[in-house]
């Protein structure tokens, strides 16, 4: 087969085989295994992670948002590797499930966080029509992984809701950081977003490329992109 080398490189990424929803067995298993491996890695990182985070909580707590990126990697990498609708969400949820079973400091909420984060990354890939998977797309997926999670952690239902019959039960309830001032909450969103772009998006893109170079993605579009860039 003659591989065309005269064409200028297109801006489109190589997409998954059609139909996009036709998940192959290797797609499903790869996402499940990647998610489980990230779940295991989450524990491992926890050892290294607890130090700086605890220090920041004693100082200015919203800065800990800078360290949230790694927990968003599963969704970004899952989406970048398999490139099918649902891959990012599936991967992040499996990672959350695996890290939840042996026990984490956040209990069953990691499952909710997994959905919130994975959904964000999924929205990013969907906005791009599952056609673009470059570093920009990865950064978008990383940054969009954060707002829902931020909302979940900082939501505060107003006390004024105590009047209406249904909303009443929500009044004054909220997430972990419900009692922070709005300025601190927004600072937290900003640090999360930065971390999402750098530690989830760009790092996830680099990780995917490194996996392709290690020959681990030959069945997937990133492996194919690597081969085409090397084709002589």
């Amino acid at each position: 087969m003659a591989t065309s080398t005269t064409e200028a490189p297109t801006r489109h990424s190589i997409t998954a085989t059609r139909p996009l929803l036709g998940w192959r067995t290797v797609d499903i298993l790869t996402i499940a295994f990647l998610g489980a491996a990230f779940g295991v890695a989450f524990w491992g990182w926890g050892i290294f992670y607890n130090g700086p985070i605890t220090a920041l909580k004693i100082g200015y707590a919203p800065l800990m948002g800078l360290f949230t990126g790694p927990w968003l990697l599963a969704g970004v990498v899952g989406g970048l590797v398999v490139r099918r609708p649902g891959a990012a969400l599936f991967c992040e949820v499996v990672a959350a499930l695996v890290s939840m079973l042996p026990g984490t400091e956040w209990g069953a909420t990691v499952l909710v966080s997994g959905i919130a984060q994975g959904l964000g990354a999924e929205i990013a890939f969907a906005l791009l029509g599952y056609r673009f998977f470059g570093v920009g797309a990865a950064a978008l997926a990383g940054v969009l992984s954060t707002p829902l999670e931020w909302l979940f952690e900082t939501v505060k239902f107003p006390a004024s809701w105590s009047g209406p019959p249904v909303l009443g039960i929500l009044a004054d309830g909220g997430g972990w950081y419900a009692e922070w001032g709005i300025g601190d909450k927004l600072a937290y969103l900003a640090t999360m977003a930065v971390s999402g772009v750098v530690l989830a998006g760009i790092l996830g893109w680099l990780l995917t490329r490194a996996l392709a170079r290690a020959g681990a993605l030959s069945a997937f579009p990133p492996g194919q992109e690597l081969r085409e860039s090397h084709a002589v």
Binding site: V26, L34, A37, G44, L211
Partner: peptide
């Protein structure tokens, strides 16, 4: 260290997934 462990784990995992996919199919 952390990146080497993560990378190594992911590569092994992806290989295992590909092998298992063949066996399952």
């Amino acid at each position: 260290h952390v990146s080497a462990l993560t990378m190594g784990l992911l590569v092994r995992t992806l290989r295992a997934a590909a092998e298992l996919a063949v066996a399952m199919d």
